[in-house]
Write a protein that binds this DNA or RNA. Sequence first.
DNA 1: GATGACATGTAACTAGTTACATGATTGG
DNA 2: CCAATCATGTAACTAGTTACATGTCATC
Lengths: 185, 185
Amino acid sequence: MALDHAILVSLLEKPGSGYELSRRFERSIGYFWTATHQQIYRVLKRMEHDGWIDVRDVPQQGRPDKKEYSVAAPGRAALSEWLHEPVEPESVRHDLAVKIRGAAFDDPTALIREVERHRQAHADRLAHYLAGEQRDFTDPGADAPLDAGQELQHVVLRGGIAYERMTIAWLDDVLATLNRLHPAP
Amino acid sequence: MALDHAILVSLLEKPGSGYELSRRFERSIGYFWTATHQQIYRVLKRMEHDGWIDVRDVPQQGRPDKKEYSVAAPGRAALSEWLHEPVEPESVRHDLAVKIRGAAFDDPTALIREVERHRQAHADRLAHYLAGEQRDFTDPGADAPLDAGQELQHVVLRGGIAYERMTIAWLDDVLATLNRLHPAP
DNA sequence: GATGACATGTAACTAGTTACATGATTGG
DNA sequence: CCAATCATGTAACTAGTTACATGTCATC
């Protein structure tokens, strides 16, 4: 189970509340793991109960108070143990590919619009990632070189960028194939 | 829910048993959806109960008898309905990326071996896909051009190939980054 | 008679999704 | 006062995983 570990890594990078974690899962963590706030609050409660993380009430001005979570020693040990275990190469789940093969048994016109919609969504994500890369990982020069944690975050982001570029190119291939099979009038 | 629909598409391509479906999910369907035999038998039972698929007992020589499933009209209608609904661009789940960011808080040496293991697994999958492409989608000439269904299967396979190539290149980037951060003695 | 591929299932558990619910605080 | 963002949760359901279980048939 990697949601526990994804949360532990995120809290090690920076302690935060359940709400803040759910924001991060929409942003930087989102390109390698997803989770809703319901899942996050449930896991935080369990990890707190198990002593993996500590909680601190943080009063705030201008916004509701929050609970700030940070990783405790047992949580760090659990993460370290998991990091040393092998995990299986992840299984892909791709609804769109099911639809593409299903199009052989249906009118493919609706599928073209769907593929175009997905292409747009991936192009948007790519632009978002590239903006983040520009913002967070532009080398500031020899005075303040990126540290190891930043280098690792950057290489993961490069994976997200490569994934989006590959996907966009593939969706173009899909569109060309669909148009070849079903030429527009 | 796409497992139902993935099974329907596969049964439309060719009727078969639960066992055969679980083989297909290890092969061609495996690069866009995964399922274990337990899941498959459960879903087949439900779809049969709902009248989406028909069953036929097939006695065999040389091996145990089997149940052959094929898609019934209501199943085809349900698939068609789903094909016309938009689906959200899929969420990525990538344990390895969690581990890479986690490596900032742990010794990265073990991670290098893990990344190399994943690289090998993806290289094996790529070789497997390329062999399948060679076998199934080599243009036999104008006498027997590929039909629409085959073209669609091929473009999905090209997606799997592009994914594996992209992943291998990214894992090389990851290894280079890890070695830069932690030079071997 | 053992192993391995073929074939089909049940039970219990874990993870993920969807729907519902509440309340603070700011800015228009 | 209304909408938006921040903030935290519960309940019910659906999907996916892991462990267990049984039996056929061919080959060595």
